[in-house]
Design a protein around this nucleic acid. Sequence first.
DNA 1: CTGTTAGCGCTTTCAG
DNA 2: CTGAAAGCGCTAACAG
Lengths: 332, 332
Amino acid sequence: MAQQRGTGKSPTISEVAAAAGVSKSTVSRAFSRPQMITAETVAHVMEVATRLGYVPNHTAQALSTGRAGTVAIVVPDIANPFFPPLIRGAQAAADQAGFSLLLGDADEDPTREDVVVGKLGRQTDGIVLASSRMTEEQISTHAERRPLVLINRDVAGLPRVLIDTSTGIAAAVEHLAELGHRHLVYVSGPTSSWSNAERRRAVRAAGRRLGLKVSAVAARRSTYDAGVQHVGAILDTGASAAIAFDDLLAQGILAGLSARGFVVPEQFSVVGCDDVLAATMSPPLTTVSAHGADAGRTAVELLLSYLGGDHTAERRVLDTTLVVRATTAPPA
Amino acid sequence: MAQQRGTGKSPTISEVAAAAGVSKSTVSRAFSRPQMITAETVAHVMEVATRLGYVPNHTAQALSTGRAGTVAIVVPDIANPFFPPLIRGAQAAADQAGFSLLLGDADEDPTREDVVVGKLGRQTDGIVLASSRMTEEQISTHAERRPLVLINRDVAGLPRVLIDTSTGIAAAVEHLAELGHRHLVYVSGPTSSWSNAERRRAVRAAGRRLGLKVSAVAARRSTYDAGVQHVGAILDTGASAAIAFDDLLAQGILAGLSARGFVVPEQFSVVGCDDVLAATMSPPLTTVSAHGADAGRTAVELLLSYLGGDHTAERRVLDTTLVVRATTAPPA
DNA sequence: CTGTTAGCGCTTTCAG
DNA sequence: CTGAAAGCGCTAACAG
């Protein structure tokens, strides 16, 4: 009969204590507060512990201390290329602090998100909520139960990190104006998205300031297909350049444009946002870089400092920059 | 002073018991084994519990039962577009079974992976290891401690799900042969990758069977840049079509080709693999679809059934299919 | 500096 | 069908 796999029973703190001839507390302290006991006692305990293959039981520690040693991050959709870098940053920060990262996917559904956050909140020390689709009420309710930090959602009183795309967007509008464009169109994403509102506002503001005409087309979804489908409407506005809600949408627009025989950037300019797949397109997309990994990392750091007692509810704003590549040129 | 946020202290089972006039055991059973007690008792306990806002403490349950209610998935790099769909599938399957998903990123480093798996193994009921870069010894060692299921790694005796790209690759070679190509080049990815070996083998086998010449170029990394950098070598082979280790590489190759003035597919055909970003490229990439989400889901299901007592060490092979899009055509 | 003694909140025999 | 009691493995006062 095959050997039983995956059944590793590890020794407990009591067994180590017995084998080392000390009390459980001493073993416990040897691991968590070494400087609290004699160096040689520590050494001895450790020696015995490693010999026995002892490893502290995370769950027991958690129950006893009330600290789970785990934080969660919930995103609307892991498959959306905006999030992986962000998750990666969060994961790295958590890991570095000795925390584990629980992942939740809200499936772009506020109701599901509400459930997921509730569930994950109960088994972690805190939550990072990225691009939440929930209402402020829902978010606040959760924040009352568990430490919560937001990414790309500006709720007063809660710690949050905001990726300020408006700086980058403004730069994009200036860039286009310098090239000679007089009429732009903003292709918007999800209506309920905070980022979308910010970007739209930024395009409008910069356009007004520079005396450009700016139209709008509501793609409503951030997908490749949505981009393709809305090129008709985009072209109908009469604009010579488009700024899309994000790269995914921009990519679709590029494809739709090329399908209609338009060559970019000679006949039409396109600017994306987020810089998640911009570098790997042809022609390479001019876009606003969002530094997603930084946002993820910062959010976790904010959360951990909150757990450490700093309840400042800091509002951290991350700047963005315009990356000019090959989809922008003077109008035809 | 601002109200204290994130400090939700929830009632314990004892408080509910007291309030309901029953014992802790009864409350416990009302939640975990309702059919074990009277329907009205259950109803009453539940009524009181909800009124008090009681929710079972996950950690305490875990300590008491020895079940964490959590599984982990560790991937080489979350930002690699192959993994998000896979993680998503895993997450969905775990969630559906009432489990939470802990995420580990190995950062493409076997040593780090070893550490991460060790750490995560201790706080979960089992682990899904995707495209592991560790040695079989390392993997086996971990499998002895914790239930483990592999994705894209074929270690006898361990439950595993393999994405059989060879079927799709063979179809790609046939497709190219039918178009009239007589000389192909396989552009390989990470040397230590099981998938890479499989794909190379499949190209070779199908090529031999169809009487085609097949060369090889070792890009070694699966990145856009690696693709761009190796077009020189690819062209030098004299082949008229390339099959790349994955889509990312193919995308780079496409860009490099176009930079040298080659137009695809008229002057050169390219086939990718994985179908992770193939649909959003222009021209849309002909590629082998890997169904990553299925793999993630299946792996978690295998893991859960293992936890349920089925120690069959099943080897599940998932088929792939060729998706013909716009980067393949008859040779010039 | 180290040992003793209570728990953390829940599950689970074992009685009744 | 329900209650009492003994832990799960670890931490944290409190003594000594």
